[in-house]
């Protein structure tokens, strides 16, 4: 899978002058988002999962990751933007022991502190609470996601109809 063939030789990127942090860039619903690499434990190809009944729609089910049962969440659906269309590049990123379905992995790169901006109060297509910061990346503005909010257990674990 080409999208996963990341340029892992980012040694030179580790020696960035100034305040920089590494982010994983990926696409979901066609848009690019970033997430702190420290939160990501793994990236895998999209794999089948077992549906778990009675959960909210964005909780797709559970999947087996090397003998561990891991919950699967469709990130796009979590944003309320419809189900991710599964294609050849569809991937899963494991964030805090939850597998997030995304369109494709884009890049791993550093973001300079000066390129990170406060998030807007409105104007983004995803809810403001899901956004930690905005960042300038390749001349566009993208959202750095707030994992605490997206993966808030009390919210994820709510059962339908309760």
């Amino acid at each position: 899978m080409s999208s996963l063939d990341l340029d892992l030789d980012y040694e030179d990127e580790l020696f960035v002058i100034g305040d920089a942090q590494q982010y994983l860039f990926f696409k979901s619903g066609g848009a690019i988002y970033a997430i702190d690499v420290a939160d990501v434990s793994e990236m895998i190809e999209y794999q089948t999962f077992t549906r778990v009944p009675m959960m909210q729609d964005f909780i797709k089910g559970v999947t087996n990751i090397r003998g561990s049962i891991v919950a699967v969440v469709d990130l796009l659906e979590r944003f309320g933007l419809g189900e991710t269309k599964v294609g050849a590049k569809t991937s899963m990123i494991i964030v805090r022991n939850i597998a997030l379905i995304i369109d494709e992995v884009h890049d791993v790169a550093n973001l300079l502190q000066e390129n990170i901006k406060e998030s807007l109060e409105f104007g983004c297509k995803i809810e403001q609470r899901f956004i930690q910061n905005m960042a300038k990346y390749n001349d566009t503005h993208i959202a750095i996601l707030n994992c605490d909010e997206i993966l808030e257990i009390s919210e994820l674990s709510t059962v339908k109809g309760s």
Partner: peptide, 18 residues
């Protein structure tokens, strides 16, 4: 195996098995 805390409130299913 436990399904994990996401499924803590799920009733009728006590766990999973690989």
């Amino acid at each position: 195996k436990s399904l994990g805390e996401v499924f803590d409130n799920l009733v009728g299913v006590s766990g999973g098995s690989i």
